[in-house]
Design a binder for these strands. Structure first.
Lengths: 244, 244
DNA sequence: TCAAAAGTGTTTGCAATACACCCATGC
DNA sequence: GCATGGGTGTATTGCAAACACTTTTGA
């Protein structure tokens, strides 16, 4: 049962006050980032509506589901699109500029997710609609403020990657040290010293050295490593510092 | 004019689908932190409604204002309560657990703000309702998930304070080096070395040494400093690092 | 003259940086 | 045998941390 709305402050007008926006349309949008072909890419869907949205690309999004937590609702959006659950995902920011959608008041809560496109082969164009990866520096025209949302996602990634080892979420399960270095260089936008990078990375004790090497390369094959999630959880609890 | 809602993804049901929560109630809440009596405190309002909210304390909050950006709406809530505008404020997180309010689906976008209670003498109990500062480690019983929201605000403050010099927002315009050290010790929850702290702080070139000293203390009076916002903006643009 | 807090430098260890060559493999 | 990327160690520098005594002032 819906009870009276909560005007929990003296200066806040009741919900039927005309100065208050009555239940603005609330949506979810997901900035899904992947690392493909040595490029950071974002997954977009084609929007074939009319008017403001005509033939434009957009972030995959949806609505809050009844009786389901906000975060879980975002996960459902993501899983419906990619077919993968339990991806790295976190809330990014709520966007609510008054004019972000022209036709009506709309507020969106943006999430960002990291995925390894190599590991999870996404079925593109579910139900006949276009779904495509775009290089983050070659974005098409987007609806609403979705360009701004993507930039916020990238900014968050660049910040977060220096605080916690989340880069691994973008790589396949087994990877070489050079692969992860190229990934970090791409995200940070600058070159890193090979020896220093490896030294720091290995000293963190987050990598498991596998008894396996690269296959099918036309030069010396590199050793493969995997990310040790258990040790990561343990070290994190102890307050370890993962700065790169 | 309201046009059709945007179901911008193949797997997202239209808004009248029964699995979708029809326009959940959207609110704003503000975690307003201040530093008083060598303690971190949060500003709460007393809620004298019935039922779930009966006689409980709550974060000051409100609704999104018609035609006004989300951030600006939060600022209005803050200004209505404190009488001060242009405080340091940023979005914290959107809280949307399905059961966070028992009676109906409600999502809140939380902001957090920093204020110097010494500098701005707040009029408490505007329009006869209780408004009070509480030590963050002696919180009263709160409605809904407001305790969780406050903890998120504190966590953000502790993180942010190590990345940017936002501590000054909690101090009066003129302060002593010991005052700011005590503030940082309180926020971080550990003691800091006086000499090292001063060395680092002064090397940042963010403080203006004033020709003024403390008044009315029963011991050697300390020099007063002020925060140099202009130089901060300039250094920030140049990519300076403010870690403490 | 005592109490209370202000103010001030040096030493030490560690972590970040800079830097160049040999190795293994496929073609 | 050559081209391609894989893999490795050391020297230097700068920053963080540890640490104790003198100064000023009011009561």
């Amino acid at each position: 049962m819906i009870t009276k709305p909560n005007h929990h402050l003296q200066n806040i007008p009741p919900l039927d006050d005309e100065r208050v926006d009555e239940r603005p349309l609330l949506t979810l949008d997901c900035v899904i980032l992947g690392f493909r072909a040595a490029q950071l890419q974002v997954l977009l869907v084609k929007w074939d509506a009319e008017g403001e949205e005509a033939e434009r690309w957009a972030l995959p999004g949806g609505y809050v589901k009844k009786g389901i937590d906000l975060d879980a609702s975002a996960n459902i959006v993501l899983e419906n699109l990619t077919g993968v659950s339990n991806l790295y995902m976190e809330q990014l920011h709520a966007f609510g500029a008054a004019n972000r959608v022209l036709s009506h008041r709309a507020i969106t809560i943006a999430y960002y997710a990291l995925i390894s496109p190599e590991q999870y082969h996404l079925r593109p164009g579910v139900k006949g609609r276009d779904v495509k990866w775009f290089n983050v520096d070659e974005l098409p025209e987007l609806i609403y403020d979705h360009h701004e949302i993507i930039q916020a996602g990238l900014k968050r990634l660049r910040k977060k990657v220096r605080e916690e080892p989340i880069g691994f979420e973008l790589l396949p399960e087994k990877f070489t040290l050079t692969q992860i270095q190229v990934l970090y260089e791409t995200i940070l936008g600058r070159e890193l010293d090979k020896r220093n990078f490896r030294k720091k990375l290995l000293k963190m004790n987050l990598l498991t050295r596998l008894d396996e090497i690269q296959q099918g390369v036309a030069h010396r094959a590199a050793r493969l490593y995997s990310f040790d999630k258990d040790n990561y959880s343990r070290l994190k609890k102890e307050g370890f510092n993962f700065d790169l």
